[in-house]
Design a protein around this nucleic acid. Structure first.
Length: 556
RNA sequence: GGCCCUAUGGAGAAGCGGCUUAACUCAUCGCCCUCUCAAGGCGACAUCCACGGGUUCGAAUCCCGUUAGGGUCACCA
């Protein structure tokens, strides 16, 4: 008669370490009371998801504000879906958002005493734990083939029973150790399942940092904990890793709530105290086809990939601020009061978190982006725009790099005022917005008809342009310049102020604003631009005249 | 389908039994401003808090039921 211990040795003959050895190797962390150890545990299966940024940002915040530790663990147990290099990329993107781990997997190397932090390198650690479970009679090898499993499922569906591997359906659960030994020695392939003691009809009470207490059915599934490829499944790796890495609070997406009973039972079986859990709401979007809310999908939604915002040239802070408004409902008011500064001083708390998945609101994110770019000084804007365009937009890089100081002047228009302009939200559309400042770009614009107002006739446009070219001087302050333009406008039949115009619109060709608009469109090719006075000063009298001449000849 | 989570305006929300004629922010729409746009200022925008019952002198707020939306039921995480 083969004992559990013998069986465990047959399965893992090379594993000599024990749970006690591991406990010694990974001792409790020496942190002050209340310090939280959090972790971000991504799978290297692609780009950083916006939801993952959300989670990891909160992990970072919680650890920082409690004086704890935030680490990253790479969950690469799904070798089939793994994408080479995505681990490094994940880390470098986190860094852009200033979500920097204290320890763990850092992309090019690992740091910390609780490693390795890459699950595929921890195979032996899991084996120690599984061996222990086999010895305790809480885990057993299962020889069922996918076909058999399928068969079981079909039978369950037919009889309207809960699907899964449990109770009477757990065919390998009660195999004798002798038989198991024989089948293993015959070379049959197997996985290892956890032997659940739970009953689906019993409820357990669980506590969640964001949802509070709730009841949920006990786990009764004999889940796979050790796969055919020698690696553990998520559930088991979570239990072992978060125990030995001494995680105090597991922060993860809401989709994990339903597997909480499994985790609770796993920790119980190992004789370990389970960490605290915080299940975060998922970020949603309205599906264009169905009109229903659904989780942000990497396949369907650009917003799902953090790289989308980076490519578009949004300042990283904007996304973080926006995500924080979803994370904590009181954040928005706080950051407004703090003039969009010193975000790190905000205190996050789980009970200020919304419970329902929020719809991703690009409009609100744009608002934050405008504020942030509006506050950025000239030097920083130039540096950032250069860095952005170098990586993502060569045409823009070429433009800026011709003369970074010139670009700085453009971006700096009305920046020093009490209420600085806030018209840029991302670097991605800069060419479109300010390209006209560059001669060659401007000339290309003229290939298309200029967007003049319908009420302005060709003759009127030519007349006022020629008058402005002749009489408008840039060698004066803004106020005088404006008066100068107004006089010219009035002399050519435009109203100098709104009241006069409104009182008798028929008497005028238009308002002084229309004069400015004609000039603006002529010089920039656009209906909107920064302050005209500064646009002209930056362009210079000579270039302004050249542009007026060009447009006039085009109209004629 | 089972189980779990959630439910206040276009979006994010405050509200924790009377202080609410339901804060605040974004968006939208008006108006104002010595130039467009933006900013800024002012104003509008929930016949009432998913629906139906109940408790109470009194409910968005407490209880019950219903409905809707979401999540989850793998040798994926």
């Amino acid at each position: 008669m083969v004992s559990n211990k013998e069986l465990a040795n047959i399965i893992f003959p090379d594993i000599k370490e024990t749970i006690e050895d591991l406990e010694k190797r990974y001792p409790a962390r020496k942190l002050k009371e209340g310090a939280e150890v959090t972790r971000f545990a991504p799978s290297p299966t692609g780009f950083l998801h916006t939801g993952s940024l959300f989670t990891s940002m909160i992990c970072r915040k919680v650890a920082s504000q409690t004086g704890g530790i935030f680490y990253v663990r790479l969950e690469d147990t799904d070798t089939k879906r793994e994408i080479q290099g995505s681990g490094e990329q994940l880390l470098s993107q986190l860094k852009i958002f200033n979500v920097v781990p204290d320890e763990g997997y850092l992309g090019d190397h690992e740091e910390g005493k609780y490693g390795p932090y890459v699950q595929s390198k921890r195979a032996d650690i899991y084996k120690v734990a599984i061996k222990y479970l086999i010895e305790q009679g809480r885990a057993y090898p299962c020889f069922c083939t996918p076909e058999e499993l399928d068969e079981i499922r079909k039978e369950q569906e037919k009889n309207k029973l809960n699907p899964g591997y449990y109770g009477e359906f757990a065919r390998c659960r009660n195999l004798s150790n002798d038989e198991v030994k024989e089948r293993i020695q015959n070379g049959e392939s197997f996985v290892i399942r956890f032997k659940s003691n739970g009953n689906h009809l019993n409820k357990i009470m669980v506590h969640d940092l964001v949802h509070g207490d709730f009841e949920i059915a006990q786990n009764d599934q004999d889940i796979v904990i050790y796969k055919g490829d020698g690696l553990p499944t998520y559930h088991f790796a979570h239990c072992v890793d978060d125990h030995f890495m001494r995680t105090t609070t597991v922060i993860r997406g809401e989709e994990w709530i339903s597997s909480l009973p499994i985790h609770v039972e796993l920790f119980e079986a190992m004789g370990w105290k389970a960490p605290k859990y915080a299940h975060l709401p998922v970020i949603m979007k309205i599906d264009a086809e169905t009109g229903n809310k659904r989780k942000l999908s990497k396949r369907k939604d650009n917003e799902a990939a953090v790289s989308f915002f980076l490519e578009d040239g949004y300042p990283a802070e904007a996304l973080i601020m926006y995500l924080m408004t979803i994370a904590n409902t009181n954040f928005e008011e706080w950051i407004l009061n703090n003039k969009f500064e010193n975000m790190q001083d905000f205190t996050f708390s789980f009970d200020k978190m919304c419970l329902d998945g929020a719809l991703f609101d690009t409009g609100k994110m744009n608002f934050f982006a405008r504020e942030i770019l509006g506050k950025m000084n000239k030097q920083e804007i130039v540096e950032r725009a250069l860095a952005y365009s170098k990586q993502y937009k060569p045409e823009l890089f070429e433009l800026i790099n011709r003369d970074p100081a010139y670009f700085g002047e453009i971006m700096n228009i009305e920046k020093d005022k009490e209420n600085p302009r806030k018209d840029y939200e991302k670097f991605g559309d800069l060419i479109e917005r300010i390209g006209f400042f560059y001669k060659d770009n401007y000339d290309v614009l003229l290939e298309n008809p200029l967007p003049f107002n319908e009420k302005a006739t060709k003759e009127n446009i030519i007349e006022i342009l020629e008058a402005l070219k002749e009489g408008l001087s840039l060698e004066q302050d803004e106020q005088s310049w404006f008066n100068n333009m107004k006089e010219i406008g009035v002399a050519h039949g435009y109203a100098g102020n709104r009241q006069e115009y409104k009182a008798n619109p028929e008497a005028y060709k238009g308002l002084i604003g229309d004069v400015a608009e004609i000039l603006r469109i002529t010089l920039s090719g656009r209906k909107n631009s920064p302050n005209l006075y500064y646009v002209m000063r930056i362009l210079g009298k000579e270039e302004c005249d050249r542009r007026i001449d060009k447009v006039v000849s085009l109209l004629k």
